[in-house]
Simulated assay, not measured.
Amino acid sequence: MSTRYWLGVVSRDHVRRGVELGFAQANHGKRAAVERMSAGDGLVYYSPRTGMREGEPIKSFTALGTIVDGPAWQVEEAGGCFRPWRRAVDYDRDARQVPLDELRGELDLTSSPNWGIVLRRGLVELTAHDFEIISRAMVGQ
C-alpha cells in the first residue's frame, strides 16, 4: 500500500496537546477520520486559530509527523462525556510553525478559488507534492 498524506484542521492548542502526548485526533474525535490513516502516512496540522473558539487567528501549519503502526483507540475525556478516537503519531519535534501564506502559491491545496471550503472537512488528503513543500518549510530541509 502506498503512503498517503493528511492535513488535519485543528486549533493550535489542541495540536500542541496531541504532539505532547504523541497522538492524532481529527473531526472532533470521529473514528472514521483516524481509521483512514495507515502506518507510515504523513500528517500535517493546519491551525486557523490558537484556540478552538476564541483564539487569535494564526492560519499556520503547526505540526508534522508520521502515523505509527497500531490500531486506533478510544479514550474517555470530560468525565465520559467525550470519547474521541486517536492514532499514535511520531511527531517531528524540530518542526516550526509556518504561515500558510508563505506557501500558498506553491500548493496544490490552495490552487482552486474555493480551497478554504475544503478545510471545513477537518481532515483532507494532501498530494505528495504539498506534503513535501510543507515539510521542507517546517523542518528547513
Results as ranks from 00 to 15, higher is better:
Ser11Ile: 10
Arg86Pro: 04
Thr66Pro: 04
Trp115Lys: 11
Val44Cys: 05
Val10Pro: 01
Leu103Phe: 06
Arg36Pro: 03
Asp92Glu: 14
Val75Gly: 13
Ala33Met: 01
Ile133Val: 15
Thr66Ala: 09
Ala88Asp: 14
Thr62His: 09
Gly8Pro: 03
Leu64Gln: 00
Ile133Leu: 13
Pro113Phe: 10
Arg121Asn: 13
Ala72Pro: 12
Trp6Lys: 00
Gln97Val: 15
Thr3Tyr: 09
Glu132His: 08
Ala32Gln: 12
Ser2Asn: 11
Gln74Thr: 13
Ala24Phe: 13
Leu109Ile: 02
Arg120Pro: 05
Ala128Met: 05
Ala39Cys: 13
Ile134Leu: 03
Tyr46Leu: 04
Phe82Ser: 06
Gly116Asp: 13
Thr62Lys: 10
Trp85Val: 04
Gly18Ala: 10
Val19Arg: 01
Asn114Thr: 13
Arg121Met: 11
Ala24Lys: 04
Phe61Val: 00
Glu56Tyr: 09
Lys59Ile: 03
Leu107Ala: 05
Thr50Leu: 14
Val124Gln: 07
Ser38Asn: 14
Gly70Phe: 09
Leu107Thr: 07
Leu109His: 05
Met1Ala: 14
Thr50Pro: 00
Trp85Ser: 07
Ile133Pro: 03
Val68Arg: 14
Asp13Asn: 12
Glu77Ala: 14
Ala78Phe: 10
Arg31Asn: 08
Ser47Ile: 03
Gln74Asp: 05
Arg31Cys: 08
Val124Tyr: 05
Ala95Thr: 01
Ala137Asn: 04
Gly55His: 09
Gly116Gln: 15
Phe23Tyr: 15
Gln141Phe: 07
Ile67Gly: 00
Ser38Glu: 15
Gly51Val: 08
Ile67Pro: 00
His28Ser: 12
Gly65Pro: 06
Gln74Ile: 07
Glu106Val: 07
Ser38Arg: 15
Thr127Phe: 04
Leu103Cys: 06
Val89Lys: 01
Asp90Glu: 15
Ser11Gly: 08
Leu43Cys: 09
Glu56Lys: 14
Trp85Arg: 03
Ala24Gly: 13
Asp130Ile: 02
Thr127Arg: 05
Trp115Asn: 09
Arg36His: 10
Val10Ser: 01
Thr127Ala: 04
Trp73Cys: 10
Arg12Pro: 00
Arg36Asn: 09
Thr66Ser: 11
Ile117Glu: 12
Pro99Gln: 07
Gly79Asp: 06
Leu107Trp: 05
Pro57Met: 10
